[in-house]
Protein backbone atom coordinates (compact mmCIF):
# COMPACT_ATOMS: atom_id res chain seq x y z
CA UNK A 1 0.00 0.00 0.00
CA UNK A 2 2.73 2.44 1.03
CA UNK A 3 4.56 1.67 -2.19
CA UNK A 4 1.46 2.39 -4.21
CA UNK A 5 1.03 5.69 -2.39
CA UNK A 6 4.66 6.77 -2.71
CA UNK A 7 5.61 5.44 -6.15
CA UNK A 8 3.87 8.08 -8.31
CA UNK A 9 5.29 10.91 -6.21
CA UNK A 10 8.79 9.44 -6.38
CA UNK A 11 8.40 8.98 -10.14
CA UNK A 12 7.28 12.60 -10.46
CA UNK A 13 10.35 13.88 -8.68
CA UNK A 14 12.80 11.51 -10.38
CA UNK A 15 11.33 12.10 -13.83
CA UNK A 16 12.27 15.77 -13.99
CA UNK A 17 15.71 17.28 -14.56
CA UNK A 18 16.55 20.82 -13.45
CA UNK A 19 16.55 21.79 -17.12
CA UNK A 20 12.96 20.49 -17.47
CA UNK A 21 11.96 22.49 -14.46
CA UNK A 22 13.53 25.64 -15.84
CA UNK A 23 11.81 25.14 -19.18
CA UNK A 24 8.51 24.54 -17.43
CA UNK A 25 8.77 27.65 -15.32
CA UNK A 26 9.48 29.68 -18.47
CA UNK A 27 6.46 28.20 -20.26
CA UNK A 28 3.99 30.94 -21.28
CA UNK A 29 1.11 29.18 -19.50
CA UNK A 30 2.91 28.99 -16.18
CA UNK A 31 3.10 32.60 -14.97
CA UNK A 32 -0.52 33.62 -15.53
CA UNK A 33 -1.81 30.31 -14.16
CA UNK A 34 0.35 30.61 -11.02
CA UNK A 35 -0.88 34.14 -10.42
CA UNK A 36 -4.51 33.14 -11.02
CA UNK A 37 -4.17 30.15 -8.68
CA UNK A 38 -2.59 32.19 -5.89
CA UNK A 39 -5.18 34.95 -6.24
CA UNK A 40 -8.30 32.78 -6.43
CA UNK A 41 -7.23 30.28 -3.79
CA UNK A 42 -6.41 33.04 -1.29
CA UNK A 43 -9.70 34.83 -1.96
CA UNK A 44 -11.66 31.59 -1.58
CA UNK A 45 -9.73 30.73 1.59
CA UNK A 46 -10.60 34.15 3.04
CA UNK A 47 -14.29 33.64 2.24
CA UNK A 48 -14.26 30.12 3.65
CA UNK A 49 -12.72 31.34 6.92
CA UNK A 50 -14.96 34.40 7.21
CA UNK A 51 -18.19 32.54 6.50
CA UNK A 52 -17.20 29.10 7.76
CA UNK A 53 -15.99 30.07 11.24
CA UNK A 54 -19.39 31.29 12.52
CA UNK A 55 -21.06 28.24 10.99
CA UNK A 56 -18.51 25.92 12.64
CA UNK A 57 -19.10 27.63 15.99
CA UNK A 58 -22.82 27.14 15.59
CA UNK A 59 -22.33 23.46 14.66
CA UNK A 60 -20.14 22.91 17.70
CA UNK A 61 -22.70 24.46 20.05
CA UNK A 62 -26.03 23.21 18.82
CA UNK A 63 -27.82 19.94 19.07
CA UNK A 64 -30.66 18.11 17.47
CA UNK A 65 -32.06 17.61 14.01
CA UNK A 66 -31.18 21.05 12.64
CA UNK A 67 -27.51 20.51 13.32
CA UNK A 68 -27.45 17.05 11.73
CA UNK A 69 -29.10 18.40 8.60
CA UNK A 70 -26.59 21.24 8.31
CA UNK A 71 -23.72 18.80 8.89
CA UNK A 72 -24.99 16.68 6.01
CA UNK A 73 -25.17 19.72 3.75
CA UNK A 74 -21.65 20.76 4.72
CA UNK A 75 -20.27 17.27 4.00
CA UNK A 76 -22.09 16.88 0.69
CA UNK A 77 -19.42 18.50 -1.55
CA UNK A 78 -16.85 16.02 -0.20
CA UNK A 79 -18.73 13.04 -1.55
CA UNK A 80 -19.96 14.70 -4.74
CA UNK A 81 -17.64 14.11 -7.71
CA UNK A 82 -16.07 17.43 -8.77
CA UNK A 83 -17.67 17.18 -12.21
CA UNK A 84 -21.06 16.96 -10.52
CA UNK A 85 -20.23 20.03 -8.42
CA UNK A 86 -19.36 21.87 -11.65
CA UNK A 87 -22.66 20.96 -13.30
CA UNK A 88 -24.53 21.86 -10.11
CA UNK A 89 -22.87 25.27 -10.01
CA UNK A 90 -23.86 25.83 -13.65
CA UNK A 91 -27.43 24.84 -12.79
CA UNK A 92 -27.43 27.41 -10.00
CA UNK A 93 -25.54 30.36 -11.51
CA UNK A 94 -25.58 29.65 -15.25
CA UNK A 95 -27.66 31.65 -17.71
CA UNK A 96 -30.31 28.90 -17.74
CA UNK A 97 -29.78 28.24 -14.03
CA UNK A 98 -31.83 28.87 -10.91
CA UNK A 99 -30.45 32.37 -10.32
CA UNK A 100 -29.67 33.01 -14.01
CA UNK A 101 -32.56 35.42 -14.54
CA UNK A 102 -31.80 37.59 -11.53
CA UNK A 103 -28.07 37.62 -12.26
CA UNK A 104 -28.67 38.59 -15.89
CA UNK A 105 -31.02 41.39 -14.80
CA UNK A 106 -28.25 42.74 -12.60
CA UNK A 107 -25.82 42.47 -15.49
CA UNK A 108 -23.71 39.84 -13.74
CA UNK A 109 -22.35 36.86 -15.57
CA UNK A 110 -20.66 34.30 -13.36
CA UNK A 111 -19.87 31.16 -15.41
CA UNK A 112 -16.47 31.21 -17.12
CA UNK A 113 -15.29 34.14 -15.00
CA UNK A 114 -12.71 34.46 -12.22
CA UNK A 115 -15.65 34.62 -9.79
CA UNK A 116 -16.65 31.16 -11.01
CA UNK A 117 -13.16 29.84 -10.22
CA UNK A 118 -13.48 31.21 -6.69
CA UNK A 119 -17.02 29.81 -6.23
CA UNK A 120 -15.92 26.34 -7.33
CA UNK A 121 -12.98 26.44 -4.92
CA UNK A 122 -15.17 27.61 -2.04
CA UNK A 123 -17.65 24.83 -2.59
CA UNK A 124 -15.09 22.02 -2.68
CA UNK A 125 -12.82 23.36 0.08
CA UNK A 126 -15.24 24.80 2.66
CA UNK A 127 -16.27 21.39 4.09
CA UNK A 128 -12.67 20.63 5.10
CA UNK A 129 -12.33 23.88 7.01
CA UNK A 130 -15.77 23.75 8.61
CA UNK A 131 -15.36 20.15 9.81
CA UNK A 132 -11.96 20.84 11.30
CA UNK A 133 -13.06 24.12 12.91
CA UNK A 134 -16.21 22.58 14.39
CA UNK A 135 -14.14 19.76 15.90
CA UNK A 136 -11.70 22.32 17.32
CA UNK A 137 -14.51 24.39 18.86
CA UNK A 138 -16.09 21.24 20.28
CA UNK A 139 -12.78 20.51 22.01
CA UNK A 140 -12.88 23.79 23.95
CA UNK A 141 -13.88 23.09 27.56
CA UNK A 142 -17.26 24.81 28.05
CA UNK A 143 -16.31 25.58 31.67
CA UNK A 144 -13.61 27.94 30.37
CA UNK A 145 -16.15 29.90 28.33
CA UNK A 146 -18.49 30.08 31.31
CA UNK A 147 -15.67 31.26 33.60
CA UNK A 148 -14.78 33.95 31.04
CA UNK A 149 -18.36 35.18 31.22
CA UNK A 150 -18.42 35.26 35.03
CA UNK A 151 -15.27 37.40 34.71
CA UNK A 152 -17.16 40.06 32.78
CA UNK A 153 -16.97 38.95 29.13
CA UNK A 154 -19.99 38.98 26.86
CA UNK A 155 -20.79 35.85 24.85
CA UNK A 156 -18.82 37.27 21.90
CA UNK A 157 -15.96 38.41 24.16
CA UNK A 158 -15.62 34.92 25.64
CA UNK A 159 -15.55 33.45 22.13
CA UNK A 160 -12.91 35.90 20.88
CA UNK A 161 -10.66 35.87 23.94
CA UNK A 162 -10.94 32.22 25.00
CA UNK A 163 -12.74 30.11 22.36
CA UNK A 164 -10.79 31.27 19.31
CA UNK A 165 -7.28 31.16 20.83
CA UNK A 166 -7.88 27.66 22.19
CA UNK A 167 -9.31 26.41 18.89
CA UNK A 168 -6.60 28.10 16.81
CA UNK A 169 -4.45 25.02 16.03
CA UNK A 170 -7.53 23.22 14.68
CA UNK A 171 -8.64 26.29 12.72
CA UNK A 172 -5.19 26.60 11.14
CA UNK A 173 -4.95 22.97 10.12
CA UNK A 174 -8.48 23.19 8.70
CA UNK A 175 -7.48 26.30 6.75
CA UNK A 176 -4.37 24.56 5.39
CA UNK A 177 -6.42 21.53 4.29
CA UNK A 178 -9.01 23.76 2.64
CA UNK A 179 -6.32 25.76 0.91
CA UNK A 180 -4.63 22.63 -0.40
CA UNK A 181 -7.96 21.40 -1.74
CA UNK A 182 -8.65 24.76 -3.42
CA UNK A 183 -5.17 24.83 -5.01
CA UNK A 184 -5.77 21.47 -6.63
CA UNK A 185 -9.36 22.09 -7.71
CA UNK A 186 -9.80 20.88 -11.28
CA UNK A 187 -13.07 19.24 -12.27
CA UNK A 188 -15.61 21.75 -11.00
CA UNK A 189 -13.46 24.63 -12.25
CA UNK A 190 -13.16 23.10 -15.71
CA UNK A 191 -16.93 22.74 -16.10
CA UNK A 192 -18.07 25.92 -14.36
CA UNK A 193 -15.24 28.37 -15.06
CA UNK A 194 -13.67 26.87 -18.16
CA UNK A 195 -10.00 26.65 -19.06
CA UNK A 196 -9.26 30.07 -20.51
CA UNK A 197 -5.51 30.86 -20.42
CA UNK A 198 -4.87 34.16 -18.69
CA UNK A 199 -8.43 34.29 -17.39
CA UNK A 200 -9.75 31.22 -15.59
CA UNK A 201 -6.82 28.88 -16.09
CA UNK A 202 -5.33 27.77 -12.78
CA UNK A 203 -2.25 25.55 -12.34
CA UNK A 204 -4.12 22.19 -12.46
CA UNK A 205 -5.84 23.28 -15.67
CA UNK A 206 -2.53 24.52 -17.08
CA UNK A 207 -1.08 21.03 -16.50
CA UNK A 208 -4.00 19.61 -18.46
CA UNK A 209 -3.48 22.03 -21.35
CA UNK A 210 0.31 21.70 -21.36
CA UNK A 211 0.04 17.92 -21.44
CA UNK A 212 -1.52 18.12 -24.92
CA UNK A 213 1.45 19.93 -26.42
CA UNK A 214 4.46 19.66 -24.08
CA UNK A 215 4.76 16.86 -21.55
CA UNK A 216 7.85 18.46 -19.98
CA UNK A 217 6.03 21.68 -19.24
CA UNK A 218 3.15 19.72 -17.70
CA UNK A 219 5.66 17.85 -15.56
CA UNK A 220 7.34 21.05 -14.39
CA UNK A 221 4.06 22.69 -13.44
CA UNK A 222 3.02 19.51 -11.66
CA UNK A 223 6.26 19.57 -9.67
CA UNK A 224 5.70 23.14 -8.57
CA UNK A 225 2.16 22.32 -7.48
CA UNK A 226 3.40 19.21 -5.67
CA UNK A 227 6.05 21.33 -3.93
CA UNK A 228 3.44 23.78 -2.63
CA UNK A 229 1.28 20.90 -1.41
CA UNK A 230 4.17 19.24 0.41
CA UNK A 231 5.05 22.52 2.13
CA UNK A 232 1.40 22.83 3.19
CA UNK A 233 1.38 19.26 4.49
CA UNK A 234 4.46 19.87 6.60
CA UNK A 235 2.97 23.06 7.94
CA UNK A 236 -0.16 21.09 8.75
CA UNK A 237 1.56 18.26 10.59
CA UNK A 238 4.54 19.91 12.19
CA UNK A 239 3.60 23.49 13.08
CA UNK A 240 0.82 22.67 15.56
CA UNK A 241 3.24 20.45 17.50
CA UNK A 242 5.94 23.13 17.53
CA UNK A 243 3.31 25.61 18.61
CA UNK A 244 2.21 23.49 21.56
CA UNK A 245 5.77 22.78 22.63
CA UNK A 246 6.61 26.47 22.51
CA UNK A 247 3.50 27.39 24.50
CA UNK A 248 4.26 24.95 27.31
CA UNK A 249 7.99 25.73 27.45
CA UNK A 250 7.75 29.49 27.29
CA UNK A 251 5.89 29.59 30.59
CA UNK A 252 8.99 28.54 32.47
CA UNK A 253 11.76 30.12 30.41
CA UNK A 254 10.61 33.43 29.03
CA UNK A 255 10.99 36.48 31.23
CA UNK A 256 7.76 38.07 32.33
CA UNK A 257 6.48 40.77 30.03
CA UNK A 258 6.36 44.14 31.63
CA UNK A 259 3.03 45.95 31.22
Amino acid sequence: MLGLLALPVVALVLGATPADLEAGLAHPLFGPALWRTAQTSLVSLGEVIALGTPLAWWLANSDGRGRRLVELLVDLPIVLPPAVVGIALLQAFGRQGLLGGQLEAMGVQIPFSVTAVVLAQIMVSAPFYIQSAAAAFRGVNPDLLLVARTLGQSRLGALLRVGLPLALPGLLSGAALAWARALGEFGATLLFAGNLPGATQTLPLAIYTALESDVRAALAIALVLAGISVVLLFGLRILPGVWRARASLSGTHEPEQQP
Partner: peptide
Protein backbone atom coordinates in the same frame (compact mmCIF):
# COMPACT_ATOMS: atom_id res chain seq x y z
CA UNK B 1 -29.01 38.85 34.23
CA UNK B 2 -26.34 37.43 31.88
CA UNK B 3 -23.36 35.80 33.65
CA UNK B 4 -21.14 38.84 33.04
CA UNK B 5 -23.50 41.03 35.07
CA UNK B 6 -24.06 38.69 38.01
CA UNK B 7 -20.66 39.19 39.64
CA UNK B 8 -20.56 35.69 41.06
CA UNK B 9 -17.10 34.20 41.44
CA UNK B 10 -17.00 30.71 39.95
CA UNK B 11 -14.19 28.16 40.17
CA UNK B 12 -15.20 24.99 38.30
CA UNK B 13 -13.78 21.52 38.87
CA UNK B 14 -10.26 21.45 37.47
CA UNK B 15 -10.00 25.21 38.25
CA UNK B 16 -10.81 26.46 34.72
CA UNK B 17 -7.57 28.38 34.17
CA UNK B 18 -7.07 29.58 30.59
CA UNK B 19 -4.16 27.48 29.28
CA UNK B 20 -3.16 30.05 26.64
CA UNK B 21 -2.59 32.87 29.15
CA UNK B 22 0.12 33.34 31.75
CA UNK B 23 -0.89 33.38 35.38
CA UNK B 24 -0.85 37.18 35.56
Amino acid sequence: LPPEQRRIGYVPQGYGLFPHLRVL
